[in-house]
Design a protein around this nucleic acid. Sequence first.
DNA 1: TGACTCATGTCAGAAGTCTGACATACGGTG
DNA 2: CACCGTATGTCAGACTTCTGACATGAGTCA
Lengths: 153, 153
Amino acid sequence: MSQGEPGIELDTSLGYMLKAASSALHSALEAVLSPLGMTITHYSCLELLAQRPGLSNSELARGAFVTRQSMNVLLQALERQGLVIRPARAPVGRALPTELTALGRRQLETASAAVRRVEQAMLADLDAGQQDQMRRLLTTCTAALTRPPASAT
Amino acid sequence: MSQGEPGIELDTSLGYMLKAASSALHSALEAVLSPLGMTITHYSCLELLAQRPGLSNSELARGAFVTRQSMNVLLQALERQGLVIRPARAPVGRALPTELTALGRRQLETASAAVRRVEQAMLADLDAGQQDQMRRLLTTCTAALTRPPASAT
DNA sequence: TGACTCATGTCAGAAGTCTGACATACGGTG
DNA sequence: CACCGTATGTCAGACTTCTGACATGAGTCA
């Protein structure tokens, strides 16, 4: 492999390592949530609503990193199951503020505990300082990627 | 929100921030790859083959973080398009060693340059030391998540 | 040798998410 | 006021990936 310039060194590529970590987290979450009959997006939606009651479909979608169309499908299912409620008419604009029901809150409790355990397992080998460092690094990367591509002028 | 213990503080949850960063990377990659007519998994497969020629379907799947069934679907398409080749019969066992064709290598070149630019943009605000720190942190997290759940004995 | 275990390749069906499209509601500007 | 751009909710169809299942080949061990 002493070629001129391989596209990206997989073993040291931070993009690849970020994907690897995220994938591992995804699998671990799926492993604990699927026995509860929930998907990760399903859980994310409930958790978002618990912390920020009244979020709209579009806001939930952004918070769970899916399109608003996908979130809409999910919300309709959650509504049918009685886990969330939305007003029939928008109080202002078109946004429908969503709320957790008691049943939704109860289902979230179990899931949230499981997710917390996964996160703690992930961070088991990092002290508080390292965790803080990681927060800063991830924030910086996310910001850099979100930032407009810097036109070539 | 002065409840006892909300499931997870979204703004400081490393799990959530990891997902956010990964999602931002995913979007940025999609933005540069889709004009080239490639998906991220499509690119990942080609990149893996460039660096590790002869990988089997299952090995590619693990490297691209998808199931071997998904990778199989993709490989058949790539084979039809003449980007990769696989022997008709396995030289040993069942594993079919896959190779990049000249066409595949050429397509990869363009994509790889674009991906490299995205990764550099992501890391624009981090010096070498911080990037190294980030590698260590991500590796530690991935290892902790992959590690067996530590039975409760 | 025969039985068992494990990894692999592949097919089929199901589930989740995405893109495209349309209608509605708010805000700014002529 | 009328127009336009933006944001939202929603429906429909397509795509990607997943889970489930089966058969093949290699290695281990009695």
